[in-house]
Nucleic acid binder design. Structure first.
Lengths: 127, 127
DNA sequence: CTCGGTGTTATACTCTATCTATAACACCGA
DNA sequence: TCGGTGTTATAGATAGAGTATAACACCGAG
């Protein structure tokens, strides 16, 4: 508990879908340790009200996060962080996305060493 | 010339938009050296016919690639590979996308070293 | 038991993106 | 002139995104 002022910031001018912004920011906060296993998230109605979007849009984000293994949702207690690792699919998805990202970087003349450094910087964020 | 049997494979069952599949595959082929600066691509009508999608969908992919700096399009000679590096925007886009990818990987317990290895493997593909 | 707060489902509407289709245009090499 | 470039315009069909209202099953707190 204590939650440390959980916040989500929606960019209403972004091309990125609202539910994707919510999903990505929650993943980011889990990764850097601001959210940890067992932490409870606001209810879909509460969060929707806070950030000024519809309840169903938040619900879509939560459902996606549950499907991806980042949340455990209980009807009575709400959504809780519960990262679980899916052996096959998770690795493949990340590998595929990384392959495309590396391709883009290569085309732009960005070296493998530069990517290594960027990754290390991300891993050094808190936690 | 010579082109080495340029091919694009569309997955009609994929959730990914057709024009994005075309765009990603072309970027991938540039990255691994199967397409190099100056190579000419099939005309939008030709490629559309080959892979069984609409001309405008291919045109959308080409236009996006041009906007992103991967192609140079001339009305008379068609589309040619011409990778150009946009100092500010390219780095930021790649950094942002990489940050989210690293966040997903961290949540799944994938180490920085594993990502380093995956990146190196991509860089070792041909070229 | 009742009340209120969970997630969940259903329906409906608007708006945008995607994909297709047909057509026409300016340009230019052969 | 002819045919092949990319490009633009218009139109339609389908799907996704976002909102809105409503209702449901569940369950802890009172």
């Amino acid at each position: 508990m204590a939650e440390e002022a959980f916040t989500i910031n929606i960019d209403f001018d972004s091309e990125e879908a609202f539910y994707m912004q919510v999903r990505n920011q929650i993943i980011t906060q889990i990764a850097c340790g601001r959210l940890t296993k067992g932490d409870s998230l606001p209810s879909v109605r509460q969060l929707a009200s806070d950030i000024g979007i519809n309840m169903h849009t938040v619900n879509k984000a939560y459902s996606l996060l549950r499907q991806e293994g980042y949340l455990k949702i209980d009807r009575r207690s709400g959504a809780r962080v519960e990262v679980e690792y899916r052996k096959g699919s998770d690795d493949k998805e990340i590998s595929n996305d990384l392959a495309l990202l590396v391709a883009r970087a290569r085309c732009k003349g960005i070296s493998a060493e530069t990517l290594h450094r960027l990754i290390d910087e991300e891993y050094e964020k808190v936690k």
